[in-house]
Computed example of a mutant assay.
Amino acid sequence: MFIQLRYATSSAAYFGLQETKKDQAILVSGESGAGKTETVKILMGHLARIASSDDSSHIKRIVESNPLLESFGNAQTVRNDNSSRFGKFIELQLGCS
């Protein structure tokens, strides 16, 4: 069920971008260990797939950038060995015609 919601969210953002030609935002929040990192990976991968033509190198570069972004500011906490100490902002610039 959660994966279907993730795809629906990224699809709605992308098609909203195409229809309105205005920026779209997706906010991913939750407690430590709630799956935010995995959700962002799925969202980024899905957006890259639906936005790219047949060039899979774009998809690969976008999805592979996430571990690097995740590594900044992480620390060990009581609840999570790799917990972020701050919010993250990720901006994807997708060309829509």
Rank of each mutant, 00 (worst) to 15 (best):
E64C: 00
Q76H: 07
S84T: 04
N66G: 12
S57I: 08
D54R: 14
S56Q: 09
C96F: 14
F86Y: 08
N66T: 15
S83L: 10
L68K: 15
S83M: 12
K60W: 12
K88Q: 13
S57L: 11
Q93F: 08
R79V: 03
G95W: 08
V63E: 06
I62Y: 08
K60G: 06
G73R: 04
S83V: 08
R61V: 10
Q93H: 07
D55W: 02
N66C: 15
D55C: 09
F72R: 07
N80S: 14
I62M: 13
R85S: 01
S84D: 05
V63Q: 06
N82H: 11
F72T: 00
F89V: 10
C96T: 15
K88R: 15
R79E: 09
E70W: 07
V63W: 01
I90L: 14
S83D: 14
I62A: 08
D81I: 10
L94C: 10
F89T: 03
E64V: 01
R79G: 01
A75F: 08
S57E: 14
L68I: 13
S84H: 05
D54T: 14
K60A: 15
E70S: 10
S71G: 02
S57Q: 11
S56D: 11
S56P: 05
E64R: 05
L92G: 05
T77Y: 07
S83Y: 07
L68E: 10
D54A: 14
E64L: 02
N82L: 12
L68Q: 09
E64A: 05
E91G: 09
N66I: 15
A75H: 01
V78Y: 12
P67G: 09
K60R: 09
I90R: 10
S56W: 07
N74E: 15
